[in-house]
Amino acid sequence: MTWPPRQRASATPRRRPLDGRGVLTLLLGGAFAWSLATVPWGPDLVHPGGERAIAQLLAAALRPELSPPFLALALEASWRTAAYAVAGMTVAVAIGLPLGVVASGALARGALSRLGAVAATRGLLALLRAIHELVWAWLFVAALGLSPLAAILALGLPYAGVLGRIYAGLLGDVPEAPLRALRASGASEWQVLLYGRLPQALPDLLSYTFYRFECAIRSAAILSFVGLGGLGYQMQLALDDLRYGELWTLLACLVALVVAVDLWSGEVRRRLVA
């Protein structure tokens, strides 16, 4: 062996002018340029009344609808949307956590059983989240009618798919050394999960769950377009009747909900780290 070791790493690697990434960049750039050429530039690009509608919409932002009966309606719609989001997230965590644990391979000891468990649960999780919550909503509304249960399941299933996928990654990524020490004191894989994996992953698990909770509020608002009631449904009514003032009030409610979840999440994380 030579000393000092040859310093191969410090030599500047020469970059080939056109590697795979360069080709892809060119292709994507070309596609964008081509798409510009297909736009029918001209006075018809924005439809005739569009500018006036936008001006009305923006003007309405200054005078949102604040009459007591409408505020009561907006509050009720917010409550309904938040309730859908909470119930949907509860379903999502209840399904996503156990699936995520199995999909992380944390409980399987043998290589073969791990492979089987991981492949099966990952497949199931992928199926759940491959279908958008709106599509789930159509399916459940068709099957169950316009019931809250349809909205909750439509939200809960795809979110379980996303949560489970992320939980599996977080639980599989924790530092291994403390886990080995637990096994050395005779702990089973279940006990290693409780005393090693979950505690180490908990801050990240909570952060991500809260982030998905924010997403769930937005999704719940959108789901209500399907006719399930809530903020989205009220927005649709307001838009149909061109009552832009009401639209802004409803939007403010939606923002308030998301900000509230964010503050809550920050508070929980602060306490956890303290």
Binding site: A177, P178, R180, A181, L182, S185, G186, A187, S188, Q191, Y195, G196, P199, Q200, L202, P203
Partner: peptide
């Protein structure tokens, strides 16, 4: 490196020695 679980209270890291039982 001690290999304790830093997120747990000391009592749980100590009692982890009992997990085998």
């Amino acid at each position: 490196q001690l290999d304790l679980v830093p997120h747990l209270a000391a009592v749980h890291n100590v009692l982890a020695g009992r997990l085998g039982e």
